[in-house]
Write a protein that binds this DNA or RNA. Structure first.
Lengths: 235, 235
DNA sequence: CGAATTATGAGAGCGGTGCTCTCTGAATAG
DNA sequence: CTATTCAGAGAGCACCGCTCTCATAATTCG
C-alpha cells in the first residue's frame, strides 16, 4: 500500500498506479490546505477525482495512511523551505534568522500542513521509520548553522545551567556527524527547534492575540533571543 | 445556551436543567479523556446518559459549543493545578520549578484536555470573552513568581537582546498589575509560558523520542534554563 | 383554578463520513 | 490462449452532526 513512487514502473498498470497515487495525493493536499486535517475527507477526494470512494482504498488502505503520506510530504516541504532559506544568507547569525523566517513563512502559507505536523496528532497515526529523516531536516538546518559557528570558533559559551549528557539520547549525538556537539549544545539546539515551532504554533492558534502587538516583530525578537541562547552572536 | 450554572436556579425546571447540563459536561469530559477531542461524539454522550441525541441540543446548540465548555473547564483546571503547585514552595526558584512540574503532571494525566487547549484548534471554535481569564491563570502563576522575585530585588538582569516595548500589546502590561513589569520582562514571561507548553507538547506528541533520553530530567533542565532566562536564580 | 405558553424529550430523517464486500472487466503472466 | 491478478464500481453497514415535528410536562398568566 502506498508503494514507493520512485521505483521505476515498468508495466502500464504500474505506471497508471503511480500516476493515480500522485493524483490522489495532490488532490488530498489541495483539500487539506482548504479544510484542515480533521475535515479532510476521503470521499471528497474521490469526488474530485471522479472515482468511486471505494477505489481510493486500492491505493491507501485507510484515511490515516493517506494522512501519513501527507505528513511525510509536509515534513520534507518545511525542511526544504528551511534549507532554501539557509542558502540565502552567509553569516551564521543571518542564516539563523533566515531559517526562522523561512519556517514561519511556510507555516503561515501552509497552516493546515503545519497543524498536521505539530498540532494534535491524528488518532490512528504512528510515525513510520521513514518519517524520522524527513522530520529531521528542519532542525538539522538549525544545527548546521550552529555547527558552522562552532567550526569558526564563533560560538559563545552557554549562559545558563548546562544540560547533563545523560539527558540526551545517544542516537541524537550520533545523528549530528561532523560537528561533535556537546550534550549541552545539542540540548540548546533542541530547545531552539522547540521554540521555533512553539512560537509559530502560538501565533497560528491565536494564543498571542492581546499579548503581542506585532507578531512578525516579536517573532524576530524570539529568533534573536533563541539564537543568542544557542551561542550565536548577532550584529 | 449553556446558561451559567452558578445563577441560583429557582424553579424545578431550572434546577433540572442545571443538573443535566453538569451531567452532560462530566460525561463529555469522561469521554474526552478516553478518545480525545476529535473522536468526542455527541451521540455517544447522549447514549451514556440514556437520552435521545437530539435532546442534547437543548443544552448545547452544537458539538463545538460543548467543546468550548470543556475548553473553559480545562483552562481553569490547568490554571488551578499551576496555582496549587505554586503554593507548595516558598522561594521563587523552587516555586518556578514546582509550577512547571505541576503543569507537566496535569498534562500527562490529562493529555487529551491538554491537546484541546494547545493542540490544533477545533475548526468551528472561536474563543469567547470569558475564556481569556481562564486561559490566563497558568501564565499568571508564572508571572507572579517573577513579580515576587522582582519585588525582592532578586531578579537578574536580562542576558540577551532586549524586547522593544512596541512589540508587546498594551492590554498585556495593564493585565499584570502590581509588578510594573517592563516590556522585556513581559516578553520573557511570555516566552517562558510558550516554552512550558511547547516542551510539554513535544513530549506528549512524541517529538522527543530518540532525542532526549530522560523526559522528566530534560523537562527539569528546560524549566531551570527557562527560569534563568527569565531572571530567576537557582540554587 | 383553568387556559395559554413555554421548555423539554423522543423519534424520524437528511446528508455526510470511513470502511467492507461483492461483482465485473481489463491487464498481466504462464 | 488461458489463468490469474488487479483496478474500479456499487451497494451497504454503522456511525456522525444536526434539524424537524410531535407529544408531554412545567410554568405563567388571566
Amino acid at each position: 500500500m502506498y508503494t514507493d513512487l520512485m521505483n521505476a514502473p515498468r508495466t502500464a498498470r504500474e505506471r497508471a498506479r503511480a500516476e493515480l497515487t500522485r493524483e490522489i495525493l495532490t488532490a488530498a493536499r489541495r483539500q487539506l490546505g482548504e479544510v484542515g486535517p480533521s475535515q479532510l475527507s476521503l470521499r471528497a477526494v474521490a469526488r474530485e477525482l471522479e472515482m468511486a470512494s471505494s477505489a481510493i482504498y486500492r491505493y491507501f488502505k485507510s484515511r490515516d495512511e493517506l494522512l501519513t503520506a501527507l505528513i511525510l510530504e509536509a515534513y520534507n516541504d518545511i525542511g526544504a523551505a528551511a534549507e532554501r532559506a539557509a542558502e540565502r544568507a552567509a553569516e551564521p547569525g543571518e542564516r539563523w534568522i533566515a531559517i526562522w523566517r523561512g519556517v514561519r513563512a511556510w507555516a503561515l502559507a501552509n497552516r493546515h500542513e503545519f497543524a498536521l505536523l505539530f498540532g494534535t496528532p491524528v488518532p490512528g497515526y504512528a510515525a513510520p521509520r521513514e518519517t524520522a529523516t524527513a522530520a529531521g531536516r528542519m532542525p538539522l538546518a538549525l544545527a548546521a548553522v550552529v555547527a558552522e559557528a562552532k567550526a569558526a570558533g564563533a560560538l559563545a559559551p552557554p549562559p545558563a545551567p548546562p544540560c547533563e549528557p545523560a539527558l540526551i539520547d545517544a542516537d541524537m549525538t550520533a545523528l549530528l556527524p561532523d560537528a561533535a556537539f556537546s550534550a549541552d549544545e545539542i540540548a540548546r539546539i533542541v530547545l531552539a527547534w522547540n521554540r521555533l515551532v512553539g512560537i509559530v504554533s502560538y501565533e497560528l492558534h491565536g494564543h498571542l492575540v492581546g499579548v503581542t502587538a506585532d507578531d512578525a516583530g516579536f517573532f524576530d525578537y524570539t529568533a534573536r533571543v533563541s539564537g543568542a541562547f544557542t551561542g550565536l552572536r548577532f550584529a
